[in-house]
Design a protein around this nucleic acid. Structure first.
Length: 415
DNA sequence: AATGCCGGGTA
DNA sequence: TACCCGGCATT
């Protein structure tokens, strides 16, 4: 029996969720780019702010608010008159937007105020999208897509006070002219860009199933569908489910999409937390992980999630998943549940849905915990997902993913 | 004790 | 780069 179980699945499957682009152990450790940023000194954080061209007040104020500017720049500013701070004669170069009473010039000032107010309003409503969060991630070049994704909606949102038009036109790619890879799926965009769209659709939890087979990544709505898919396509077995020994279960993963959790994750990103202005506070957070499944062919920063383990679904509990899901996700990968999606060639599957682990405790716990111990060992808390060892047993070691065989972090059952 | 996996070693 | 394993943290 076990003899036939060719190791095929093993090496084949280990890839899927793993970061494309080869995150090596070291990278794995440095889950937080900001760690190095921290080390590399003061210039990292504030300087790189991609100052939004339109609103100096917005961008500047924002960045400043968030990442309390380091000493040196402050001092410099104080010293050098001519900056707005100097001009205003304020003793402290506070970044608060000056909305003082002494704004005398009546006509023009009014306009400015209106603008400022508008800006502030939009800021307060959608704090997330300005430069700040993007900055914190900046060290990772691979994050470009994210950043773009994050920043992009800015415009559309601010201009989206009217109802329906706020759909972010993802098709028009201003960001990545060259990448053939599909941008984020609309749904994901909703998650990412939060409030406005997300409020619209308040679907609680969706579950989809993604094939983990190498270079497949098919996403189907029901467990049975994905099982059948795996059986037929990958395992080359007959389609009778009753014949199954459950092996398919190892080759797909269940992905829950929890809207609320996602929103939470994002809101952490947002500069709304006044007490935690330190960039390290959120970088590792979950954003990447939230997005990770969307990984495109290009190597994405892994930053494995702490709160989003795509749990493998095992036969007995293909639970609620199957039927409950609405139809929306199916389109992500294959339109009609066909066997192969031509447009989907990435090992990760085309665009896997975002997955958020519904466990209440974890999501929050990890984020704050991380930054505190910078130098210390950031050993991961150890997820509760089953690992190869547990699943296959020590005597079927050949079925383990390579990482497990090498005593590395399991690649097949990520947590 | 079993497990997960980091860090480092070897080929 | 692939592979292995000591050793430590966690369960």
């Amino acid at each position: 029996m076990e003899a036939e179980l060719s190791p095929g699945p093993g090496p084949g499957c280990e890839r899927p969720q793993l970061r494309a682009g080869g995150r090596d152990p070291s990278a794995l450790r440095a889950e937080a780019p900001w760690l190095s940023a921290q080390g590399s000194g003061p210039r990292a954080a504030p300087v790189t702010v991609p100052a939004p061209p339109q609103g100096p007040s917005m961008g500047g104020g924002f960045a400043g608010l968030e990442f309390a500017l380091p000493q040196e720049p402050l001092a410099a500013d104080l010293g050098t008159p001519g900056t707005w701070a100097g001009a205003a004669g304020l003793p402290t170069p506070s970044v608060h937007i000056p909305v003082p009473a002494q704004r005398s010039p009546p006509g023009k000032a009014r306009l400015d105020e209106v603008l400022a107010a508008a800006a502030l309003t939009s800021l307060s409503t959608s704090p997330l999208y300005l430069g700040a969060p993007a900055v914190s991630f900046s060290p990772e070049p691979d994050l470009e897509p994210w950043r773009e994704a994050l920043t992009q909606p800015t415009g559309s949102y601010s201009s989206s006070s009217n109802s329906g038009d706020c759909v972010w036109d993802q098709a028009s790619d201003q960001s990545s002219p060259s990448t053939p890879s599909p941008p984020l799926p609309p749904e994901a965009a909703h998650f990412l860009f939060g409030e406005p769209t997300q409020r619209k659709r308040k679907s609680a939890v969706q579950v989809v199933f993604q094939c983990l087979w190498k270079s497949c990544g098919k996403v189907l709505r029901t467990a049975s569908a994905i099982q059948r898919h795996i059986r037929l396509v990958h395992l080359g077995r007959r389609a009778e489910p009753e014949h199954s020994d459950g092996e398919e279960d190892f080759y797909y993963t269940e992905l829950d999409i929890g809207v609320d959790m996602l929103t939470n994750g994002l809101s952490n990103l947002a500069p709304t937390s006044p007490e935690a202005p330190v960039p390290p506070a959120f970088p590792h957070l979950d954003l990447p992980s939230l997005l990770r499944p969307l990984a495109l062919p290009l190597p994405l920063p892994p930053l494995l999630s702490s709160a989003a383990p795509p749990k493998t679904c095992h036969g007995d509990h293909a639970h609620h998943a199957g039927e409950a899901t609405g139809g929306s996700w199916e389109q992500v990968s294959g339109h009609s549940g066909e066997e192969r999606n031509p447009s989907c060639s990435s090992p990760q599957g085309c665009l896997a849905p975002v997955h958020v682990d519904p466990q209440p405790t974890e999501g929050r716990a990890t984020a704050p915990a991380l930054p505190s111990k910078l130098g210390a060992s950031l050993r991961k808390p150890r997820g509760d997902a089953k690992k190869c060892r547990k699943v296959y047993g020590t005597d079927h070691r050949d079925l383990w993913c390579t990482a497990c065989r090498w005593k590395k972090a399991c690649q097949r059952f990520l947590d």
